[in-house]
């Protein structure tokens, strides 16, 4: 019994201490920073002062009221949610047929097809974004082809790089594997006899999909959506590289507040709101998953 406790102690304490030091405490400091005043030269002002030998706390809610009073920030949050939502939706649309194809392919080929989805994801994140800089650049064959069509239809030629279109393409490209994997994991378990039965009973292909496959696949769709939506919501590198001034998201504002303007309290407030959004989504996802599990 004593030995058992010793083992538990030896195993769990090193990671526990490390993560407390370099995750829990920093996160706590960030939360507290939201209530502090900005320092004179950026960073943070002292949390308390000693006046007449008495300790006086210097905390404020100004950073939060700034967020509420300026509609620009609210709009930026909405915009970020919109971008993340559209990314998720496009990922579902692209990933579903592919996941279905892999799940219904002969066992022999499944692992290979799946590996082919994961493989590009292992190359550096920046490289994958950079690739789209080349493809969407003004002189690329792709942009020329698009503009050939666009001008052929009688419109002005368009720019692709440094626009919201480029940001969306980059977001979908980077997050797609996160949608394919959970969808595949779900679809693979479906009992194909259900579809055969439905067909025998006269259901059309669309009915078989909409009444059987789709409802059964919802846990996979939700899991994938959480995996795509959450990182997409906090993304700053893709808008930073592929986007223009009009495609800035909440992540870019946070990066700017923390590293450039060095207004840490306000940057912390924005980070907290982002954390709240993420927790909300994760909580909803867990709730839906539990419901789905009960039903299944």
């Amino acid at each position: 019994m004593l030995r058992n406790r010793l083992g538990k102690w030896l195993l769990s304490w090193p990671p526990l201490v490390y993560l407390t030091l370099f995750f829990l405490i920093p996160t706590t400091i960030m939360f507290v920073a939201a209530f502090r005043n900005p320092g004179d030269y950026g960073g943070l002002a002292p949390m308390y002062n000693i006046e007449d030998g008495k300790l006086v706390w210097d905390l404020t809610l100004d950073n939060f009221s700034r967020l509420v009073e300026e509609p620009l920030y609210f709009e930026l949050f909405l915009k970020s949610i919109g971008y993340a939502g559209l990314t998720t939706l496009l990922c579902v649309l692209l990933a579903y047929p592919l996941a279905w194809l892999i799940a219904t392919t002969h066992k022999k080929w499944r692992d290979l097809l799946l590996l082919m989805v994961i493989l590009p994801f292992w190359s550096n994140f920046l490289i994958r974004i950079y690739a789209w800089m080349i493809i969407l650049g003004p002189q690329s064959a792709f942009t020329k082809a698009v503009n050939w069509v666009v001008t052929g239809l009688g419109f002005e030629p368009i720019q692709l790089l440094f626009t919201p279109i480029a940001v969306m393409i980059g977001m979908v490209y980077v997050h797609l594997p996160f949608m394919v994997l959970p969808l595949y994991a779900n679809l693979e378990k479906h009992d194909m006899a259900l579809l055969d039965a439905a067909q025998d009973l006269g259901a059309s292909a669309w009915q078989r999909f909409w009444k059987i496959t789709w409802p059964l696949s919802l846990p996979g769709v939700f899991a994938g959506s959480a995996l795509v939506f959450i990182p997409a919501l906090g993304m700053f590198a893709i808008p930073d590289i592929l986007g223009g001034t009009d495609s800035i998201l909440i992540g870019n504002l946070i990066k700017q507040q923390i590293l450039d303007t060095r207004d840490w309290p306000f940057g912390s407030v924005l980070s907290i709101v982002l954390t709240g959004g993420v927790l909300l989504i994760a909580g909803l996802g867990a709730l839906v998953a539990r419901k789905g599990a009960k039903r299944g």
Partner: peptide, 18 residues
């Protein structure tokens, strides 16, 4: 598990402040 689940950005922010 939390560091895996949250956007990387948040960890970057809290660590640089820390």
């Amino acid at each position: 598990l939390t560091p895996i689940a949250i956007p990387e950005l948040l960890m970057g922010v809290s660590l640089v402040i820390f």
